[in-house]
Design a protein around this nucleic acid. Structure first.
Lengths: 132, 132
DNA sequence: ACAAACGCTGAAGTTCACTCCAAGTCTACA
DNA sequence: TGTAGACTTGGAGTGAACTTCAGCGTTTGT
């Protein structure tokens, strides 16, 4: 059993965000102490691990909420979950390829500017030594 | 000289967005016809190409605006531009590595669910044939 | 037993990157 | 020359993902 602060530390999400995720249905309704304080289990932590993976690969919170709800429904949703994950996987791969292409262009631009900078510095040095 | 619609088509950004980018300083103030209508040049298109690369690799519009403003100031900002681009490049590479790791985890999860699904389907088939 | 620290809630606020609107202006073509 | 359709503006609105706030309840350590 972990407090919200411990989970925050372990997951890298703020306590605010953890409560928010629960409200939005990403996480199941976390168990509470007699006084109403959240007590997270290892399963919650594991679920958060998956949530972070999905989020970090660009899935929207809404889609994640949908996926996690299916997970909670049990084995009869396995087929749907597999198909959702496959779709997501394809999207992510496509997006990473896109990104690589754009990154290559940025790198090209960077080299171009680097060369231009060298030229510029050299000319500045020359004109400075020409009239001391 | 291109109209905003032509540029929209060529760049994949909506006319709205093009005007918005101009207002936010990503693009210089585009030239106008006598009647005030925007007339984009090839240089504007090229600038848009770079803007899209930066945006697609996750740079914020604010940072892009800063970068493009420097570009417009000329060669004395080359050093700063090179350093900004280098910083951005590093960030993008780090982010892509992160993403790859998260994607691997998603793939692992997917395989796990796939196996589980096969088990589940098989059991269902067995119990169906056991009592016909 | 009591204070300090932590946690709770619902609602409002923030930032980002658009996106839409209304009401008017401009241009191309018949 | 008329008109359909594209273009203009400032400002308001949207949706996603938080983030902050106010005011109150709970837990922990001494």
């Amino acid at each position: 059993m972990y407090t919200i602060q411990e989970v925050s530390r372990k997951s890298g999400l703020s306590a605010h965000t953890l409560r928010y995720y629960e409200k939005e249905g990403l996480l199941r309704s976390v168990e509470r102490s007699h006084g109403g304080i959240r007590q997270y289990t290892d399963e919650d932590l594991e679920a958060l691990g998956l949530i972070c993976c999905l989020k970090n690969t660009g899935m929207s919170l809404q889609e994640i909420a949908r996926f996690m709800a299916l997970t909670r429904e049990g084995d009869q949703t396995l087929r749907e979950r597999v198909s959702l994950l496959e779709k997501h996987q394809k999207r992510v791969i496509a997006r990473m390829e896109e990104m690589q292409k754009h990154l290559d262009k940025v790198t090209w631009k960077l080299n171009f500017f680097s060369d231009k900078l060298q030229d510029y510095e050299q000319k500045k040095a020359e004109s400075a030594s020409a009239r001391p």
